[in-house]
Design a protein around this nucleic acid. Structure first.
Lengths: 231, 231
DNA sequence: CGCGGCTTTGATGTTCATCAAGTAAAGTGG
DNA sequence: CCACTTTACTTGATGAACATCAAAGCCGCG
């Protein structure tokens, strides 16, 4: 983890993110003086569950996972966050401490803004407040819907669902490199690592997907969609 | 469902609710002219999944459930909402249509505020915006944590968990009347009705609880807590 | 009074986690 | 760069946990 200097390229970075479209250039200036960037390598912990919340963090580049840890290494992944996802959006306004951990799945750069400063901005700029509400609403909503969807599927349905998710929502391509390990997939959709592997193998044998290590290609999308919906 | 007249007892109702503590008396006045109340009897639908979101709704009195419906009557309850819970808090700022249904578990009165008016208030009143953010954050957070907690427990653990939840969080009493049917408990914690009944019976036989229809009394709280945490 | 929904219990079968054991890959220190 | 250790991946066998099916009693409601 390294702290970088604050050359103010915020404009580009932040403006690209919808949430900040209502922040004026002047207000943006004050961000640049208070924000900082940090880099994390794959595997490093960005936020430790239980740590006090003093800052607002978002992913500028890379990929992170939000997860809860409980005894003996049994983790549960709440969600994955990509650039411009606001990883501390969940508890940030309601809690004093993080209820989950965040760590980098790929090399990641995050931007960090002081929470007090962010709150000031909410108070001063009503449109920004609305943007933030909308963003937060969407984030929470997606997570909840995800839990709901996954809970009513059997294991084959879950694997189908997550594969379609990667292809259609994240990579926009039926062929992609899995960013996560089999173990992490298991933690993401609530099953064991062995069964993730088993079912991926089944899908391969059935000609639904092609696998080469972390590389996945969807061969029979119709069938995968059917499985996702009906299993 | 009846529409009531708008005698402005908002002050009492709304002020009691933390979220509105930063709304001035003047602003409160404009609420009274725009808000309305509706009554629903047990079992009636307050919000139908898919309906357009045009208003902000909260429970003034009673108890409702938020749930998603999927084919052939297999529902999943997302959460229960009691007075001053903001039932349309989730999708309200991010979606145009409700992603879930809401119906009354007990006779319920809801207050309804025009969404446009609410957004104006967010824009005008920064402290109110922060309150709303906090409230929303907490709501979403609780739901997510709940899913997380429940997912890692086996069936006995889930029943223990939900019973403790009723006793400690909702009724503040080790003896209470179950507001929900066995079927609804099942939908709330992701198991079948039969197994809810079976495990409640087991707990009764094991002397952990006493049951009389909908009335539950926790007899051995220590054991229930142990089950909730270790099963 | 009868019908439909809720509740209860038992029997059965499927799904899934766990255990075990081995291979492959990736990081680590000399 | 190679031996070494650790972590990820894979497959099979087993049993436990849980859903499903079936049948019957109960209760409220029209």
């Amino acid at each position: 983890m390294q702290i970088q200097n604050n050359t103010c390229e915020c404009k580009e970075c932040i403006v690209r993110s919808l949430i900040f479209e209502h922040v004026s250039t002047m207000e943006l200036g004050t961000f640049c003086t208070t924000k900082r960037e940090e880099n994390y390598r794959k595997g490093q912990v960005v936020i430790q569950q239980g740590a006090p919340i003093t800052e607002f963090i978002y992913v500028k580049d890379g990929l992170v996972k939000l997860y809860t840890q409980s005894g003996q290494g049994r983790n549960q992944i709440i969600s994955l966050a990509r650039p411009y996802d606001f990883i501390s959006l969940l508890t940030i306004f309601s809690d004093k401490h993080y209820q989950y951990s965040v760590s980098a799945i790929e090399d990641t750069t995050v931007c960090i803004i002081d929470l007090v400063r962010l709150k000031e901005l909410v108070r001063e700029n009503g449109n920004f407040a609305l943007d933030l509400l909308e963003r937060m609403s969407r984030t929470a909503d997606n997570i909840i819907r995800n839990y709901n969807d996954i809970n009513r599927k059997n294991l084959r349905g879950r694997i189908a669902y997550i594969l379609l998710n990667f292809a259609d929502t994240i990579y926009l391509n039926d062929r992609f490199e899995l960013p996560v390990s089999r173990k992490e997939i298991a933690e993401l959709i609530g099953m064991t690592t062995e069964n993730v592997i088993r079912i991926l193998s089944e899908f391969r044998k059935e000609g639904i997907i092609r696998i080469n290590g972390k590389e996945i290609e969807i061969a029979d999308k119709t069938k995968l969609q059917f499985l996702s919906e009906h299993a």
